[in-house]
Amino acid sequence: MDFLQPATWTEALAMKAAHPDALPIAGGTDVMVEINFDRQRPPAFLDLTRIAELSGWGLDDGMLRVGAGVTYARLIGELGDRLPGLAMASRTVGSPQIRNRGTVGGNLGSASPAGDAHPPLLASRAIVELASTAGTRRLPAHEFFLGPKRNAMRKDELIRAFLVEPAQGPQQFSKVGTRNAMVIAVCSFALALEPERRRVGTGIGSAAPTPVTAPEAERFIEGVLGEHDMWQKPAPVAESALVRFGELVAAAARPIDDVRGTAAYRRHALAVMARRSFVWAWNEYRGAV
């Protein structure tokens, strides 16, 4: 097995072009598990940890552009105020040791339906930046996930960064696991309020072949809020509307029975989490206006 260690991004792209089967590795918190469990035997690794620019972040035309190598621990520490939903999700990833190593770029690369970072990226309509020697392209997160552990990357591409707007309003993330820490999601839900645009974003994890959004639920609750001009004059949302919102989120999922939980429970839990996290976010908005 070859171990490729590019020192620069240009070199990394060239190596990936020359070795399209090389498996990129950053924190190694997913990849090494695959290797140790003998689920993958890639002909080569492409070690991305030496490329300084991947671990940086900055502003890019009003968006935050976050390098693929930024760890969960740094996201929480450095960007928690601007990306609260993603930070809350990051807080639920593994143990402190895993959060010190694991990266959102790696989460995207693995494209597990249970990846904790995915629902908040979907809820806030993040963009994934992919690059190859042929050039750079930007793909909306919802177009990035194609199936279980399958994404839209070409074999010669690497994930360079993701772009996301700093939070425009309250955000929430909620995840069911059968342990109170260090647990893979049975299912998860992310919510982002964008008061200026009168928009509500959602993301669902671990309850469909890919992470998905719940567009009908979004339109429904936007309608409820719009109808009563609640963005301007925020008031408690009727219980019946909250229940409906939850039902629509649950309906957007396509869960299965597996070793972590049943499909029926996942739907049920999504409805509860959607209702609760909307109330938390809405109460925060009401208190801020």
């Binding site: 809350m88 909620s174 069911v176």
Partner: peptide, 10 residues
Amino acid sequence: LPGGVSNTTH
């Protein structure tokens, strides 16, 4: 709280 840091209930 039940659910712990996964933020399932307040």
